[in-house]
Design a protein around this nucleic acid. Structure first.
Lengths: 304, 304
DNA sequence: ATCATTATTCCATTTTCCGTAACAATCTTC
DNA sequence: GAAGATTGTTACGGAAAATGGAATAATGAT
């Protein structure tokens, strides 16, 4: 069996939440789709999807496999793109998109080193908290923070883990009390990032690896982490934010981390770029550089 | 085309350095092997192998693709193993193998947390600098430090990058002078780790990403990093060692890092385990734990 | 209870893949 | 330098697998 094809079909089915919809999207027959999923389940000797004619849901194994299949397909696309890469040296204009706060705090620190290394390359940096469409907006590389992004026609490379921190102002905690367990959050005011796929339920794991999911109803949603941070500092609510945004406030005491025994896993910094057969050299060198600078920190930490 | 199959064949060809040898190993015809490689090259529209009837060498693209294909195959095997994992909770005896120095310095710090989390699991830790054969010696998980290991019937999961440091004692440097560029190493005494696949040539890259390869002729080879470190401290020669082994001596001044503008890339800590269709839960939870503890450090560093 | 929608299975057809064998190319050895 | 052995490539016939269309079974909404 063609495992890659089967994975492609499976991922499409999960994303479309239907076999026929996936078949339409993949421009093939529903018979083929059905057989691919069945063959995959047979190959793994595990049921991946609980399917009735009306509803489709993933089993635990299916969920696990979905994430891995997504990653593998992205890696395959990347391998294909890099193999067929044009041998020309990097030149021209490189268009980069990144979230606003991340761009200011981190990317700005990284870019100078890249510019020195590739002086012939001109950069066009577009900081926005919008979800840009790479193809239509002519963006070469987009940086995103979150769970693994969907991977249709796009390669996503995981660069570094991002720690998410739950915190609030001392003032807020004095007035509303400090949550001791995740379920306490239900009765608190919270803030959510607009594009967080986990929007209104936070999935936390404790130090024993035990997962719990808490439903929260954010009083403010925003597409910018700094706005949420500021609202939290002013005592409005509890915020879940990436550590690079809230760390300064935690260091100065304006925010206090809570529920420190629980953490949200799977958050990472991703570089996204179009899956083309011939990868431009400028994109490759930039991804390589990003990988390097975000790895240096890991190395430093492993030393001590 | 079956891309996974093609990758398997390609990797086998590269490892066997011959089409017929790969065909024999894969128990198939050389015609099939030849066609798979050709189809792969056609698919990528790139030549992967320069082949005459007598000699076989990888192109640059082939080299790139080899590494990625290796990784993808390992990830696929892992996805398959995890999908078919037994649902039973982890129990029984977990046999772990690790290099001696690494085991003492790092693993010993990590194990208590794991034991607390899984009190029902008994551990059998075997520290050795031998290359253990997982299947015959009944080892569940082996930790290795180096470049990506070969991946036949085995899953290798990259846990963390490992910085390699070139250093020597102040005494040695006073007597022999301090190398300023990598090529100076040729005229120096060096020490090599036995199982280092890069044995007698060190591949270094400078900060601009420019790679250079230096041939060295080690006066001592050993299968233990601490022995080499000790020899270097006593002023015998220059040593290339993982930072977690030499850092203490560097901090106290017994060793001095040299050629700091150059580094050796690709060295990582890997967890190796057998590619079985049904992955025992005890192996999965241990790999997860290792991943977590070696990632915590990266997260910490990204915060600041 | 009916109906529309969805997933699965059957069947004939097409496509792909494989091994054997002939062929071409290259290095070794005498 | 020629013979020989080994290696990679290509052609051919047969086997295996994948595909689309249609029939069938199953499910939830009206």
């Amino acid at each position: 069996m063609d495992l890659i094809r089967a994975m492609q079909v499976y991922v499409a089915v999960v994303e479309a939440r239907s076999l026929v919809a996936a078949a339409a999207k993949l421009d093939t027959s529903n018979a083929a789709v059905s057989r691919h999923v069945a063959a995959l389940e047979d190959h793994l000797s595990t049921r991946l999807l609980n399917r009735t004619t009306r509803r489709l849901s993933m089993t635990d194994a299916g969920q696990q496999f979905f994430g891995r299949a997504q990653q593998i397909l992205s890696d395959v696309a990347e391998a294909e793109a890099i193999a067929g890469e044009s041998a020309t040296s990097p030149s021209g204009l490189l268009r980069i998109s990144a979230p606003l706060s991340f761009g200011i705090i981190r990317l700005s620190k990284w870019l100078p080193g890249f510019i020195v290394r590739h002086p012939d390359l001109r950069l066009d940096v577009d900081l926005t908290d919008r979800m840009v469409d790479l193809a239509t907006e002519g963006v070469d590389v987009a940086l995103r923070i979150g769970l693994q992004p969907a991977t249709t026609n796009v390669i996503s490379r995981r660069l570094a883990p991002v720690a998410m921190v739950i915190c609030a102002s001392p003032d807020y905690l004095k007035r509303h009390g400090c949550p001791a367990v995740p379920s306490d959050l239900t009765h608190h005011q919270t803030l959510s990032y607009s594009y967080l796929s986990t929007g209104e339920s936070w999935n936390l794991v404790d130090r024993q690896g035990q997962a719990t999911s808490v439903r929260v109803s954010p009083i403010v949603r925003a597409n910018n982490g700094d706005v949420l941070r500021e609202l939290a500092v002013q005592g409005l609510a509890i915020v879940l934010g990436p550590s690079f945004i809230v760390d300064d406030d935690i260091a100065t005491g304006r925010l206090v981390p809570i529920l420190e025994g629980w953490s949200m896993t799977g958050f990472s910094l991703y570089a996204i770029y179009l899956s083309r057969k011939f990868l431009p050299a400028k994109v490759r060198v930039f991804i390589n550089y990003l990988e390097e600078v975000s790895r240096v920190q890991s190395q430093e930490s492993l030393k001590s």
